[in-house]
Amino acid sequence: LRGAEVCAVCGPGCPALPPEIRRLDVTTAREMFAAAEDVWPEMDMGCFTAAVADFSPEPYGPEKFKKEGARDGFSLRFQANPDILATLAARRRPGQKTLGFAAETAPDMEELMALARAKRARKDADLLAGNRINGEGSGFGSPTNSMAVTDRCGHGEIWPQQAKADVAWELLSWLLRL
């Protein structure tokens, strides 16, 4: 809608996108990282919206789990998934911009802002939008969000509940001003 050429790296469950958007489908967090890493050098900005799992099970092997071998149950080991936003933010070239999201549970918007500021700094994102997923009318599955937004210059705003399309438009406007 704003004239950009868009490439979307889509995990399972991503809805249909307009045909003008280049779509790269992936299944795992590691595939998402590889796809994002491949296209990042040609991008002017990245919107890192996925709630990618922090950990995934380590491969167990080709054998079937057998009850006889694990009468008391068995344990799975987990390995950390790559941090897509932090890694690509660290590799950005001059002029490239990053927008990250943080799905958080927080008792109120002020605490959400504190969490958003900390995550923005940890990830070195240019702009970070904190989303209070335990708030009414906000989070996953809701058509609206209220946000705590903070940028690399130290500015922050708490946005009242509004349509997600409006949130997206305002976030991109802010990112373009940075």
Rank of each mutant, 00 (worst) to 15 (best):
L1W: 11
G3S: 12
C7E: 02
V9Q: 02
G13M: 03
P15S: 09
P19I: 03
E20P: 05
E20R: 07
R22W: 02
L24C: 06
T27F: 13
E31W: 06
A34Q: 08
A35T: 08
C47I: 09
V52I: 15
F55I: 10
Y60L: 14
E63D: 13
E63N: 13
K66R: 14
A70F: 13
R77C: 12
F78V: 11
F78Y: 15
N81R: 09
L85C: 06
T87E: 14
T87R: 14
L88V: 13
A89F: 09
A90N: 14
R91C: 03
R93N: 06
F101N: 00
T105H: 11
T105E: 10
A106E: 07
M109V: 03
M113P: 02
A116Y: 07
R117Q: 08
R117N: 10
A118V: 00
A118S: 04
A118F: 01
A129F: 04
R132N: 14
N134Y: 10
G135P: 00
E136C: 01
E136D: 13
E136T: 06
G139E: 10
G139R: 11
S142I: 00
N145L: 03
A148L: 09
V149P: 04
T150W: 01
R152Y: 02
W159D: 05
D166G: 00
W169A: 10
E170G: 01
L171H: 06
L172H: 10
S173Q: 13
L175W: 11
R177M: 07
